[in-house]
Amino acid sequence: MSAGFADIDWARPWLAPIEARGRRWQAAALAGYDEYLATLNEDAASALHVTGRGERLAFIGQEELPPDASYEGHIAQTGRVPTRHNLHDFFNASMWFAYPRIKAALNARQAQQIDTLGIGPTRGGVRDALTLFDENAVLFACADASLADALRGFDWRTLFVGERAAWGTRCEARIFGHALLEKLVAPYKACAGHAWIVDVPAGYFTLDDAARRALLDERISHSILDAPLDNRVFAPLPVLGVPGWWDANTSTAFYEDVSVFRTGRLNRRC
């Protein structure tokens, strides 16, 4: 079963940070589930990444998750990530390599919440925010507070039109959420992420991709472990509005669609 793996278009700019490893994984996934898991585990063995409680990262078939175990708790305790043969879990695994500290921090805090509160019919505010980050976050790195304010204030014309030249020099977006990446295999205009705003120094934009990811990985992982969390810490971001990500957004008329680029109340600062 290909599960949509053949549909991944590596020319999409938001996939550039994971393309090199992703192409190998895609080929393995198309060859079969066993080869796919073996390839993930070869990479995990050489990368030496760990999960939320310091356990070495590995990937197992979903059927190996014990029926009485929670997903996040099992990962924290064993290091073994239950993984299905589908796009959703493909992109989830990708983030363990692109941002290993963020993923470990998310897992650590999820496990701590489960230990404290148990598994109930609802997750609660902190676990909801952690899950939203994991599934749908966009990392908005910004060296200009006015651009962060424009994002929080739904000032799309400033952010995407008036300050278009700022993208790549004073701000940028990087998709983290694996559910969002899955949706963007078949992009549509209304596709939106939840932006986590990260203040970065101006020199950030002189760094290469690996160095930028490392800086964000370290900085955000500390925030996840230490900061108060609920869903209000995010700012909505229509991702196909990001300059350079979608051909149609070169026209200012693209941003006049109020069903996508909505006005709204100011979000609390991340």
Rank of each mutant, 00 (worst) to 15 (best):
F154Q: 08
D155R: 14
W156V: 05
R157H: 07
R157T: 04
T158F: 06
L159S: 02
F160H: 06
F160P: 07
V161W: 02
V161G: 00
V161E: 02
V161S: 01
V161I: 12
V161D: 01
G162Q: 10
E163S: 13
E163T: 09
E163F: 10
R164K: 13
A166W: 02
W167K: 10
W167Y: 14
T169A: 08
T169D: 07
T169Y: 09
T169F: 04
T169I: 10
T169M: 08
R170I: 02
E172D: 03
E172A: 09
A173H: 10
A173T: 12
R174M: 11
R174G: 01
I175H: 07
G177I: 15
G177H: 14
A179V: 15
L181P: 12
L181N: 09
K183L: 10
K183F: 05
K183N: 09
V185S: 07
V185E: 09
A186V: 12
A186H: 13
P187N: 05
Y188H: 13
K189R: 15
A190E: 11
A190V: 11
C191V: 08
C191E: 04
A192W: 14
A192L: 11
G193V: 09
G193T: 12
G193L: 12
H194E: 00
H194Q: 05
A195G: 03
W196Q: 01
W196R: 14
I197M: 10
I197R: 14
I197L: 13
V198G: 03
D199G: 13
D199N: 14
D199I: 13
D199H: 14
V200N: 01
P201Q: 07
P201W: 05
A202C: 10
G203H: 14
G203F: 12
G203E: 12
G203M: 08
G203S: 13
F205D: 01
F205R: 10
D209I: 11
A210L: 05
A210C: 03
A211Y: 04
A211G: 08
A211R: 15
A211C: 08
R212M: 02
R213C: 01
A214Y: 13
L215S: 07
D217Y: 15
E218F: 13
R219I: 00
R219G: 00
I220Y: 04
I220M: 02
S221G: 02
S221Y: 05
S221L: 06
H222D: 00
H222R: 15
S223I: 09
S223A: 10
S223G: 03
L225N: 04
A227Q: 08
A227C: 05
L229N: 02
N231H: 14
N231T: 15
R232L: 02
V233C: 06
V233A: 01
V233F: 05
V233Q: 05
F234R: 09
F234K: 07
F234T: 03
F234I: 07
A235W: 08
P236C: 08
